[in-house]
């Protein structure tokens, strides 16, 4: 029986979801306040920006790349967008217009950084790790330089309401995350470019010989990832009512951890939108539960680090046979 369950767990697409459910049930019994409507809402709200950013990262990782610059994309989008919207900037737009322009600018900043990454990876043939590490440093520094390390306040109410407003009783962050997931699902599962993404990740040389537009595919993924990071920045900035040059500085581990825990291959070619959703759910549940249980900060870091390391090892072990072949 246990062996059958184990086999099913290993083969199942939803193994992380089962783990989440198990973790949720156990924590509900042992952690006061964990199983409550308030905490479930809280979990949902904390989940959404991370889902959006992680979906973008998934697309890049499916091509065999990685985008380490998402943190600087979030930071730069946040301060540039906030600068356009802040009443301190003196641009004099009315609040609704400035909100519209601000969000647009944030998304353009994200797309532009993604474009830089994609072009550097494809046209210059540089390793994704090096390119995005460099752009992370450059754009993080640029955000700090641009703002002289100052936060940007006095954003319009119409922007601040984004994180708390609902559309037909569904909160905007949930709508945004669902939208991104649906778009990613649609692209990956029903379009030619989705097939190209998987093909590039599985074997770039074979893909190129087969007529896949490799460069275009990779660039599109980095641009999509940049836009997702910028959309995450919209939600984070709205929630904190502040544009910050260090926003999102510490979420890289959570994002990559969530994607890897979900099961997306570090080597490309394998991964699904729902896997990433489960990975993010697991990371968020872990954070939430550890926080509520009252473990010390250092212990939480150790546990999270171990879980992500364990997931990465499993990921590599699963890939090893296919790598060998």
């Amino acid at each position: 029986m246990i062996a059958q369950l184990k086999e099913h767990y290993q083969k199942s697409d939803n193994s992380i979801l089962y783990l989440c459910v198990l973790y949720y049930i156990v924590m509900s019994f042992i952690t006061p306040g964990f199983f409550s409507l308030g905490n479930n809402w809280n979990l949902l709200f904390n989940l959404m920006p991370l889902v959006i950013v992680s979906i973008g990262q998934t697309c890049v990782m499916l091509t065999g790349g990685i985008d380490l610059s998402i943190t600087s994309t979030i930071a730069l989008s946040s301060v540039v967008g906030a600068s356009f919207m802040s009443s301190d900037s003196g641009l004099g737009f009315n609040p609704s217009v400035s909100t519209f322009i601000g969000i647009g600018v944030m998304l353009v900043v994200g797309a532009a950084i993604g474009l830089v990454n994609g072009v550097a990876v494809t046209k210059l043939g540089m390793p994704a790790f090096m390119v995005t590490l460099t752009t992370m440093m450059f754009f993080s520094g640029f955000a700090v330089w641009l703002t002289e390390s100052q936060n940007i306040y006095n954003l319009p109410d119409s922007f601040l309401r984004i994180s708390s407003m609902s559309m037909r009783d569904v909160p905007i962050p949930v709508v945004a995350a669902l939208g991104v997931m649906l778009i990613a699902y649609f692209i990956l599962n029903t379009t030619v470019i989705g097939e190209w993404i998987y093909a590039v990740g599985l074997n770039v040389k074979v893909a190129r010989i087969s007529g896949v537009n490799v460069d275009g595919t990779i660039i599109s993924c980095y641009v999509f990832c940049g836009v997702c990071a910028a959309l995450g920045a919209v939600l984070y900035t709205s929630r904190l009512e502040t544009g910050s040059p260090i926003m999102g500085q510490n979420i890289l581990l959570d994002v990559i951890g969530a994607v890897v825990i979900g099961g997306t291959s570090l080597f490309g070619g394998k991964g699904k939108v729902k896997w990433t959703l489960f990975g993010v759910l697991f990371i968020s549940l872990l954070d939430n539960g550890l926080n509520l249980i009252g473990l010390s900060y250092f212990l939480i870091m150790i546990v999270k680090g171990l879980v992500i390391l364990f997931a990465a090892i499993l990921n590599v072990l699963k890939e090893r046979p296919s790598l060998a072949s």
Partner: peptide, 14 residues
């Protein structure tokens, strides 16, 4: 700051 907001939200939900 975002993480701090989430952590305090956890306190509140508890």
């Amino acid at each position: 700051a975002n993480r701090q907001f989430e952590q305090v939200s956890n306190f509140i939900s508890r």
